[in-house]
Nucleic acid binder design. Structure first.
Lengths: 215, 215
DNA sequence: GATTTCGTGGTACGAACGTACCATGATGAT
DNA sequence: ATCATCATGGTACGTTCGTACCACGAAATC
């Protein structure tokens, strides 16, 4: 046999090219030729490693979700050794906010895929719809743990609060994306809401400044 | 002069056709010919009333926002005569959730436009980006009024709470849209959050049942 | 050394899309 | 009655896109 190329690696490079060009020009404006040019390969090669555009897009979504999952996990780990529930949740949600180019791209493409999935059965069946469910499970569990150690505000349903928290975070992310809100004001809204969910009394590794508190 | 047709009315009909077909097949899959067929006119007529596709899409967005604004306003009015702040806010947010076909379409298309606006300067300059700002102003003002009449939970910043509330509502809407959450569970999350913002003690014209309260 | 198979390139084809062009009733002003 | 003008239809053009087809070099197996 000839050259023996690692298909997985090559597919990853092409998928990354897809994500880059889609983040730059929008997913709707991305064609096979654009991806090929961005990856520095010929159109034929993109066809070779992904038979069809649909499969390329599907793999791109996988790739995107995986990369972003790693990012969030890294940010949570960076929150310090054995952080409290509050710090963990805060790191999780803050890492998901579109503040830099990478997270902006993720938010944009994820939303694009979500919109497409409404009328595309193949996309709708993709696990990216289970990803938020997993996140909700994690946050819910963290809140439950905080509740048991009595670090939660009184009478809160961890499951409902987790759902609300994630929805708010996603909504704030979209607001940032379209330029309606600055990352700072979004973070402020989120922090205040966390203050109310948790007692807002414990330090808990978290450090948000009380200065500069206006609109 | 000949026939004299009301351009505004005709443009409205075509825009409605655009919204219908876009809601059915997705905004990305809509072409001039589809809109023409849906409106029951020739392709040439769509060109005649909207010179270009871009202008058609722009007008479609206007049309969409206007229609939905009216819908929300109607729902708020239907909340009863001189409703309290809680009932008003609740009616507002609940009316925005994608529970029926009309609101589903609105959410879907609004999100589609938002995604497009990230890389389209003309769309980004459109007033639909100011619409959420207006909503935030309204909710913020309602919360402020509730705060002054002491019907708000202690120590809440109306502006921040309004922002968080709308972001959560939007996020929940997206969750419903992609099928991750049922309208009922989303409403439950929203209601609980409202319970915590308001004292959860006043009847305030609102009636949410305390039965059937599980997942 | 011959051959089979993998990786790669170039290119062509058919479809769809937005837009432009040309034509033609119908109607109100002159 | 004539004519300019509005509304409308049909259609053709150029482009772009996804996909299919054909060709060739290189390397590992026999």
């Amino acid at each position: 046999m000839p050259k023996r190329v690692d298909h997985g690696e090559r597919r990853g490079e092409i998928a990354e090219a897809l994500v880059r060009v889609a983040g730059r020009r929008g997913l709707h404006a991305v064609g096979m030729r654009d991806v090929a040019a961005e990856a520095g390969v010929s159109l034929r090669l993109v066809q070779y490693y992904f038979e069809t555009k649909e499969k390329l897009l599907l793999f791109g979504l996988e790739y995107l979700a995986e990369r972003f999952g790693e990012r969030v996990a890294a940010r949570v780990r960076a929150a310090g050794p054995s952080p409290g529930p509050r710090a963990t949740v805060e790191a999780l949600l803050m890492a998901a906010l579109p503040v830099d180019e990478e997270s902006r791209t993720f938010h944009l493409l994820y939303t694009s895929y979500a919109v497409l999935s409404v009328h595309d059965r193949t996309l709708a069946a993709q696990p990216f719809i289970r990803n938020p469910d997993a996140a909700e499970e994690v946050v819910s569990e963290l809140l439950r743990r905080a509740h048991e150690s009595d670090r939660l505000a009184s009478g809160l349903d961890p499951r409902l609060e987790a759902a609300g928290l994630l929805a708010m975070s996603a909504g704030l992310g979209t607001s940032i994306l379209v330029g309606q809100r600055t990352p700072e004001s979004a973070a402020e809204v989120l922090t205040h809401h966390l203050d109310r969910i948790f007692g807002a009394r414990d330090g808990d590794t978290c450090a948000h400044d009380t200065s500069a508190h206006d609109a």
